[in-house]
């Protein structure tokens, strides 16, 4: 209670002015990076008609007064993805955005419910093409070594000692017992168990090695990435970059198939129902854009606050965000 009151009564920013100067430099550097490459900066709504169906991402509801043909039950966007894909379908070509996004309930040293997301799309790029560009951007700014690439399966085998594709549910659950009591583990799905091991065991181990791209996620964690069979397993063309154990970005060779997308939305809402979470309306405008034709492309979203945190050698986002949630 005391700290809550202290935080609210504090008018000062949690980040130093020097950190805020670095933040301004970073933003200018990022814009220069894309200007050089002929990628167009765009802006899309922060307040939209639809949220997302992802079971683990909660949108913040926002209810404006309905204007002509508008909506009254909207959502602060968790990522500019659907709007940007509508721009891709409209022929925008390569585009990027520095977006303010919102994720309800996420707060900690590496989370703030409102944060800056750098998202960009590259028509004609595969996931490996885009990983090369991410590497140039991140390492160009941080001055770090070019990231290694490891498969999701291999990071689990090496750092958690378990095969995420072949282990049985009970083997996974047993391994999770070092973090959670068996009675609480019963409420975890297979993917929840993998996420627990990722957060508690794999990420801390990744902090001990240099920058690394993790690729080849299980099909159940494909999100909006296309899936193909590789090395005998159905794997998502999804990649994440970890620098010093910090998850910095999430990218896909994008799914552009409307039917498949529709099916995944429905599956998300099914999972939401089973978990007792509210179902989310499906973004019909995005589906219509997929129907009209989103070009073959890869896209990625990168956390700018975390990038700056790494640049400045800090371990808490409060050092790089002027006013985090506890003093916003």
């Amino acid at each position: 209670m005391g700290s809550e009151v202290a935080a609210i009564s504090s008018w000062q920013p949690s980040a130093s002015v020097a950190a805020l100067q670095s933040r301004a430099h970073q933003l200018a550097w990022v814009r220069g990076f894309f200007a050089q490459r002929g990628v167009m900066e765009v802006e899309t709504p922060v307040l939209g008609r639809y949220g997302v169906t992802d079971i683990n991402i909660d949108s913040v509801p926002a209810s404006p007064v309905p204007v002509a043909a508008g909506f009254s039950n909207g959502w602060l966007q968790t990522s500019p993805e659907y709007h940007m894909k509508r721009l891709l379908a409209a022929g925008a070509g390569p585009i990027y955005q520095v977006a303010r996004v919102f994720r309800d309930g996420e707060f900690g040293r590496r989370h703030n419910p409102e944060f800056s997301l750098l998202e960009w799309y590259r028509p004609g790029f595969t996931d490996s093409d885009l990983m090369a560009e991410v590497s140039e951007l991140v390492c160009g700014w941080l001055g770090c070594d070019a990231p290694a690439t490891m498969r999701y399966r291999d990071v689990f085998l090496r750092f958690a000692g378990i095969d995420p594709f072949l282990a049985s549910d009970s083997e996974l659950s047993a391994l999770c017992e070092q973090w959670m009591e068996p009675s609480r583990l019963q409420s975890l799905s297979r993917d929840d168990c993998l996420d627990l091991l990722m957060s508690c065991q794999v990420e801390p181990a990744l902090a001990e090695i240099g920058p690394v791209f993790v690729t080849g996620y299980p099909e159940s964690q494909a999100a909006l990435a296309r899936v193909s069979e590789q090395d005998g397993f159905r794997q998502a063309h999804r990649f994440e970059l970890y620098v010093q154990g910090v998850e910095l970005c999430n990218g896909y060779w994008e799914l552009t198939d409307k039917e498949e997308q529709q099916w995944r939305f429905a599956a998300d809402n099914q999972a939401r129902r089973s978990a007792g979470k509210p179902e989310m309306p499906v973004d019909e405008a995005f589906l219509a854009a997929l129907d009209a034709g989103v070009p073959d492309c890869s896209g990625v979203a990168l956390g700018l606050d975390r990038l700056l945190m790494l640049k400045l050698g800090l371990d808490d986002l409060a050092g790089v965000i002027a006013f985090p949630a506890d003093r916003a």
């Binding site: 992802d54 683990n56 707060f107 508690c200 990420e203």
Partner: peptide
């Protein structure tokens, strides 16, 4: 109380 969560994954509190 430490909040941990893979971007697309389940959130936990350690």
């Amino acid at each position: 109380n430490e909040f941990v969560k893979p971007g697309k994954g389940q959130a936990f509190n350690r």
